[in-house]
């Protein structure tokens, strides 16, 4: 096991270097840099821009910039955000925290809804409920998330006009006067704001999970050992929960590691439309303005999490499935 871990950690190095270098490279072959946006400002002189470019180190060769970045990384320094004039981690971290709340909640929803539905479908395949549930799951998948969120916000505004209040807040992450609330109420407030966007995120992934779950359970239920268990006269409930389910969730557990980078890459365009101050709006800004180190910093964090997540997934798998051993 420990040999395996060491091997995975060694693999981490080329992946990490590859991902960050690729990010660096692709970001820098795009024309212009962070300072180009000031070039058309009549109040700023070209000399000033050249001086800033030098101060930011953007006039150095690409490879050198990368090496210096790597060097600073060894000190735990991800570089400076040009936009904010602050260390990248300080800029990015609060946003990642916010995204974590949204993504975490949506994952919770996903499993709480997806797994039971998948099982239900597997127990009654090719019946009307099966079709209806599939259809509903596809329904969520087939509407682009950013558009779905806009529809919900519109409906909320209509609701407010009709009844004078709204069941959910209209965008944002905290209410007015949030700072004055006691800590527990603060959390309630944030969760209340997160429910709708999290729901929209879930709709996109639900059909995928239920589909896998349904197929898994169906396949497991067709296996010999289930037949054996049934013929032994075990109660159907025991068969289902003790034997079938445990085997059916294995691939889902194996996938949990893959979710980690998703946690920090945020909930995507939903964050923009729902005005959730997560990582996506920041990333879009940073990409637009070519805030180099914010971009590379996010890639670095995300690739690190991916690798850690993969290892975690493998370990979890070994935990659930005794047949799997890593050497």
């Amino acid at each position: 096991m420990s040999a395996y871990l060491v091997r995975r950690l060694v693999h981490l190095v080329p992946t990490f270097l590859g991902a960050t270098f690729l990010a660096f490279f692709v970001l820098q072959i795009a024309p212009g840099d962070f300072l180009t946006q000031w070039a058309l400002d009549p109040k700023i002189r070209p000399e000033t821009i050249e001086r800033m470019r030098h101060n930011f180190g953007l006039d150095r060769p690409l490879l050198l910039q990368y090496l210096i970045w790597l060097k600073n990384l060894l000190h735990g320094d991800l570089g400076i955000s040009f936009m904010y004039q602050r260390p990248v981690l300080e800029v990015v971290w609060p946003r990642i925290e916010n995204s974590l709340i949204l993504v975490g909640l949506s994952l919770l929803f996903l499993y709480l809804i997806g797994i039971p539905i998948g099982i239900y479908q597997a127990l009654r395949p090719y019946t009307l409920p099966d079709y209806v549930v599939s259809f509903l799951a596809y329904f969520g998948l087939a509407i682009p998330n950013f558009f779905f969120m806009l529809i919900l916000i519109f409906l909320l505004v209509k609701f407010k006009f009709a009844y004078g209040w709204t069941p959910f807040p209209i965008g944002g992450m905290t209410s007015q006067g949030f700072e004055q609330l006691p800590p527990l109420r603060q959390w309630v407030d944030i969760l209340w704001h997160a429910i709708l966007p999290a729901f929209v995120v879930v709709t996109a992934d639900l059909s995928g999970l239920t589909r896998v779950m349904r197929a898994q359970v169906m396949e497991v239920l067709g296996q010999d050992y289930i037949r054996t268990a049934r013929s032994k006269g075990l109660a159907e409930r025991v068969v289902l929960y003790k034997h079938a389910l445990r085997n059916a969730v294995i691939p889902i557990i194996a996938n949990i590691g893959g979710l980690l980078p998703g946690l920090i890459s945020g909930a995507g365009l939903v964050e923009v439309v729902a005005n959730w101050p997560g990582i996506t709006p920041l990333l879009l800004d940073a990409l637009n303005q070519q805030d180099l180190y914010v971009n590379v910093g996010i890639i670095a964090l995300s690739s690190l999490l991916l690798i850690v997540g993969n290892i975690l997934g493998d370990l979890l798998l070994a935990l659930v499935d005794p047949r799997i051993r890593y050497g």
Binding site: H11, P14, T15, F16, G18, A19, L22, A23, V26, L27, I29, A30, P31, G258, P261, S265, G266, G268, L269, T280, L283, L284, L287, N295, I298, I299, S302, S303, L306, I307
Partner: peptide, 24 residues
């Protein structure tokens, strides 16, 4: 496999946007 991992390590949205920006 390293290449696949690298691609997986970069967030989807990020990859879309940067690739698009990299092309004229």
């Amino acid at each position: 496999m390293r290449l696949v991992e690298i691609m997986a390590a970069i967030p989807f949205l990020f990859l879309l946007i940067t690739l698009r920006a990299a092309f004229p």
